[in-house]
């Protein structure tokens, strides 16, 4: 019984971190689907969001809800600005240059924030407080419940947005074939900007959810989180939204179960091993569409 309740708690933990990975993975996946760029700066948007929450709560004494909204606004703006300044001029150049630019932006954000705020971690005040629920010996904290709830709501909202609205249709069209979409009168620039805005907003939400259970912001927090989320996106099939959600949950659960087995130092290794196995068996990811090569 004790074993079962530990397992259950670990599964809840896994789902919680998995939902955060999933939210971040969506940003990677959407951007990759639309301009074929591995946006390495995406992880650092999470970090920027976390710093906005920290700054607005400690220095300006904002209510947690408003500081989260502010973080979402700042991150969204930042995502769009990065796209306009750094990625848009390179749209017709080799893809590797674009990738290096993304890496450069990621370095710039990390080092810039380190310069301004110092390298140490900042403790963020409690964002979500509430009782811890006991279910048959296993405990579920309020932040975990909120994380799961918010993620489910966002996933449903995003699916509706992409499937039912005009902008969502434009996004799908551009990711299918950019040239053809342009000929059909889709405004490419607006669509790409919108995708970046959406991805960055999701990253900021993920950042707030992350802070609600880990409560620390540091300049490099985004890199490993971003890398794992990116693995999640690839695992699920990059460019596919349900795939990103599934990938995030798989990674989160795998990490939690490895930790539950007492092997937490091998956590990162297991995540990447799963990735390699999946890529070798199904190179397009769990839910991705196989790509055909044409001459």
């Amino acid at each position: 019984m004790a074993f079962l309740s530990t397992l259950f708690s670990q599964i809840i933990n896994g789902l919680q971190s998995g939902s955060i990975y999933a939210l971040v993975a969506l940003g990677y996946s959407m951007v990759y689907g639309i301009i074929m760029l591995l946006n390495f700066a995406h992880g650092d948007i999470i970090m920027v969001g976390a710093y906005v929450v920290w700054l607005s709560m400690t220095s300006f004494g904002l209510h947690p809800l408003f500081s989260i909204l502010l973080a979402v606004a700042v991150s969204t703006l930042l995502g769009v600005v990065i796209e306009k300044v750094a990625y848009a001029p390179l749209r017709s150049s080799p893809r590797l240059s674009l990738l290096i630019t993304a890496i450069g932006i990621s370095f710039l954000l990390e080092n810039g924030f380190q310069l301004i705020f110092g390298a140490g971690a900042k403790v963020v005040p409690t964002l979500i407080s509430g009782p811890t629920f006991q279910i048959g010996g296993a405990s579920i904290s309020t932040p975990a419940l909120v994380t799961l709830g918010v993620t489910v709501v966002i996933m449903i909202g995003l699916t509706l947005l992409v499937q039912k609205t005009r902008l969502g249709r434009a996004m799908r069209a551009v990711s299918e074939d950019m040239g053809a979409a342009q000929l059909m009168g889709v405004n490419i620039n607006t669509t790409i900007s919108f995708t970046f805005a959406l991805g960055s907003a999701l990253a900021a939400v993920a950042s707030a959810l992350y802070l609600s259970s880990y409560a620390q912001a540091s300049p490099t927090m985004g890199s490993m989180l971003g890398l794992k989320a990116f693995v999640a996106a690839v695992l699920g099939g990059i460019g596919s939204l349900p795939g990103a959600m599934l990938g995030g949950l798989v990674i989160g659960l795998a990490e939690a179960l490895v930790s539950a087995a007492g092997l937490s130092v091998w956590k990162d290794g297991v995540v990447f091993a799963i990735l390699i196995v999946v890529l070798l068996v199904r190179p397009s990811g769990l839910l991705g569409k196989p790509m055909k090569e044409k001459v």
Partner: peptide, 19 residues
């Protein structure tokens, strides 16, 4: 400032000389 300068140089070179 050196790491900030380093990353700025990287981004600028890529924007103005992508090859």
């Amino acid at each position: 400032y050196r790491m900030v300068a380093y990353s700025l140089v990287l981004v600028l070179v890529m924007i103005f000389k992508p090859t």
